[in-house]
Design a protein around this nucleic acid. Structure first.
Length: 465
RNA sequence: UCCCCGAUAGCUCAAUGGUAGAGCGAGCGGCUGUUAACCGCUAGGUUCCAGGUUCGAGCCCUGGUCGGGGAGCCA
């Protein structure tokens, strides 16, 4: 008989026959001559209850020794449950042990509450817990919904490179990619440094920090494009919101300005939240009950209300008039600190806020200079609990202005040859943003540490598993 | 990288400088169509590492390592 997944068994008609395979979550015995086994196989949040009676030939030998984590195969009939808590259960006719837990006393994912800190140390077993099973399914659904939204709106997924030789993307420290012998690298003739010409790519290479510059080229040909892939930052940042390896979604739209960009961000977020609540209602109910009370209502509120657009200059005024004693003073021209962003989105507006038109001095070279000459068409989408979920901008499409910005920031024009070409050959206004996927997962689940929003987190000093 | 806090049983945590304990988990037994089951018993320890102070250190001091919270950088 073909095996059935728990998800389908829970929805199947009473009287159906089923073979189920999965892992034991708990076992409870009754002296009435039967054992209850909660079996999960990852297909959905709920486990299914298996009722194994004492007349099974291996009841004494096997069933009574099943512990949390054992892998089993159960064959039987789906029957109406006599107990409360579940509609159907499996009346087992055979229980086969596929894999035992060798020492139940030290099984790292035993049937008790574990802290997230501890579970990070057993990242290979934590997917068996409620929380991390749910996290994995939510991640999948969010990724699916993102692709779905873009596809429906005429976007094309562009696969930008992971390895880049452009060290000028201006977004933090890079991880070097090299095949040279680190102990004894070839040196230049003057012995002053490593001779990168002899390296694999004939020049220095790194892991990408952003696909933006690359995706802009396809934007200026296909019109609506996006990237969705891993990105890397070699920054020594130790916070609950940063990873050294994270996934980023970067749409780029042609013939568009910052307002179009903000509208896209809002449309995308609302679509994926709605899709998630619809398709992963089981996991979301768990996050709502156990991780963050009121989570579902919060997300529904976000879907229902328009995002608040807030020019940076107004944000500064609000902060200055707030009467709050901030650790860092608020003044026009400086970047908003975490505490400022938190105040705006968590206390003042209590909803996502799109801060736009930042001072040019604190933003990247490629952001479009506004007519005031002081600000650039940049935006940050700030959300309660997570902070900066999205960072984006309208790109500078005027070659002479772009060159002026490069010069201002002392960046070598020659390094931006192909990027500048886009402004020389049929340039158009265009805009885009970067959405941190793990931050989205945090925002949607209520998880408060980004290391719990990705299967295998990479952070300074952490790359086990 | 900076500031603060922490590290004791498989896990979560107690323990005036003087015999290292509990809850959960685990094993065994009891009870029960159970469902975070319940009741009883039992096992389980190089107190993170290296030094130091002391008659005596889980506790005090110094230096590491690792973890957490916050900050910066950002997504």
């Amino acid at each position: 008989m073909a095996s059935m997944r728990v998800k389908d068994a829970l929805a199947a008609d009473v009287g159906s026959r089923a073979t189920l395979r999965g892992w034991v979550r708990t076992r409870r015995d009754s002296k009435a001559g039967l054992s209850f086994i909660q079996l999960h196989d990852g297909s959905c949040f709920e486990p299914i209850q298996v009722v194994a009676k004492a007349d099974l030939p291996n009841y004494e030998r096997d069933v009574l020794h099943l512990t949390t984590g054992c892998a089993i195969e159960v064959e039987g009939e789906l029957v109406e449950s006599q107990g409360k808590g579940q509609r159907v259960e499996v009346a087992a006719e055979a229980v086969r042990v596929v894999g035992w837990v060798e020492d139940p006393d030290t099984y790292p994912a035993s049937a008790k509450r574990h802290t997230f800190e501890y579970l990070r140390e057993v990242a290979h077993l934590r997917p068996r817990t409620n929380t991390f099973g749910a996290m994995a399914r939510v991640r999948h659904r969010l990724a699916f919904a993102i692709h779905d939204y873009f596809d429906r709106n005429g976007f094309f997924w562009v696969h930008t490179p992971i390895i880049t030789t452009s060290d000028a993307e201006g977004a933090g420290h890079l991880f070097r990619v090299s095949t040279l012998d680190a102990m004894n690298p070839p040196m230049t003739d003057d012995k002053r440094g490593v001779d990168w010409k002899q390296d694999f790519f004939g020049k220095q290479a790194f892991l990408t920090v952003s696909g933006q510059l690359n995706v802009e080229t396809y934007c200026c040909a296909l019109g609506r494009v996006y990237t969705f892939g891993p990105t890397f930052r070699a920054e020594n940042s130790n916070t609950s919101r940063h990873l050294a390896e994270f996934w980023m979604i970067e749409p780029e739209i042609a013939f568009a300005d910052l307002r179009d960009d903000a509208a896209l961000a809002e449309g995308l977020l609302k679509h994926v939240l709605d899709d998630l609540l619809t398709h992963r209602a089981d996991d979301m109910a768990f996050f709502d009950e156990r991780i963050e009370k009121g989570l579902i209502d919060r997300l529904k509120h976000v879907i229902a209300s328009p995002f608040r657009m807030l020019p940076y200059t107004e944000a500064v005024e609000i902060l200055q008039k707030s009467g709050k004693a901030f650790e860092f003073p608020v003044q026009w021209g400086g970047d908003l600190q975490s505490e400022h962003e938190r105040y705006l989105t968590e206390e003042h507006f209590k909803q996502p806020v799109v801060v736009v038109d930042y001072p040019k001095g604190i933003k990247a070279f490629y952001m479009r200079l506004n007519d005031d000459g002081k600000t650039v068409a940049a935006m940050d989408v700030l959300v309660p609990g997570v902070g900066e979920l999205i960072g984006g901008s309208q790109r500078e499409e005027r070659l002479e202005v772009l060159d002026g910005r490069l010069e201002e920031m002392a960046l070598p024009k020659d390094d931006y040859g192909w990027y500048r070409d886009l402004r020389r050959y049929g340039t158009v206004p265009h805009a885009g943003f970067g959405l941190g996927f793990e931050r989205l997962v945090m925002y949607c689940t209520g998880l408060t540490n980004i290391r719990d929003a990705i299967p295998f987190p990479r952070a300074p000093g952490q790359a086990g598993f």
